[in-house]
Design a protein around this nucleic acid. Structure first.
Length: 226
DNA sequence: AACCAGGACGTGA
DNA sequence: TCACGTCATGGT
């Protein structure tokens, strides 16, 4: 197990290369991936986000993509951009139905519009400070994965992000039980990898890329030859 | 036509 | 704690 965590990372990186997550709308597309967003990746640039606005865009994206394809979340994000609402104050100033219509393509519009407001208030209360994992989790609409995504990609904190794909791949490979909890699985990765933000960022993105190709529908196909 | 998307919350065992 | 239903839309 210890070995395979890092070994699989190497294999995925060799297969797909650097992914350049988290996508940001105002960046040129430079990614080789064919299955992700249409634009916004920034492979090998680990100095992002550079501005509060970019942090905020990432945070909005983490909510919008919950149980939703990124292509759909991206449409909602573009709607918000066209409303000039990728700014905390302006998003809060939107009429309720306007916000919901913007969120609609990402699904769960009633929940996500409230969650966006919740996390926006939280973001503003930080006043530029980096939040702790515990305090982000208090925001209604932010669970384990979203909290870790915010910390890893918006604040460059070494928190490994686990998602449904992670559990699916590693249980399919027989490395963990399907019922392994989020925190237990997170710990397995963090215990077997150097505590390094770019590696955490790339590994999670690589898992998503790999899963999109081989773990969408059964029967799953193990091409990693472990 | 069923199933899945870069989940989280509320409820009742 | 944990299993289960619910939330919405879009693509395959």
């Amino acid at each position: 197990m210890n070995e395979s965590v890092h070994e699989i990372y190497e294999k995925l990186y060799d297969l797909y290369g650097p992914q350049g997550w988290w996508p940001l709308m105002d960046l040129e597309s430079e990614n080789l991936s064919k299955t992700g967003a249409t634009h916004g990746y920034h492979p090998l640039n680990y100095n992002l986000p550079e501005t509060q606005k970019q942090k905020y865009e990432i945070i909005l994206g983490t909510i919008l993509t919950q149980n939703t394809a990124w292509t759909s979340a991206e449409k909602a994000l573009l709607n918000l951009k066209n409303l000039d609402a990728i700014h905390p104050e302006k998003l809060l100033a939107l009429e309720d139905d306007v916000l919901k219509e913007a969120v609609r393509p990402a699904g769960f519009l009633n929940q996500k519009s409230v969650y966006l407001i919740n996390i926006t208030n939280f973001f503003m209360s930080l006043d530029g400070r980096t939040p702790s994992r515990k305090e982000i989790l208090k925001v209604k609409g932010v669970g384990n994965e979203t909290a870790d995504s915010v910390l890893l990609y918006a604040y460059n904190q070494p928190e490994f992000v686990v998602d449904a794909y992670t559990k699916r791949i590693f249980s399919h490979l027989g490395l963990v039980d399907e019922k392994t909890s989020y925190m237990a699985l997170k710990k397995i990765f963090e215990d077997n990898l150097p505590m390094n933000v770019p590696i955490y960022q790339e590994y999670h993105a690589l898992i998503v890329e790999h899963a999109k190709r081989y773990y969408r529908k059964k029967p799953y196909h193990n091409i990693l030859k472990l």
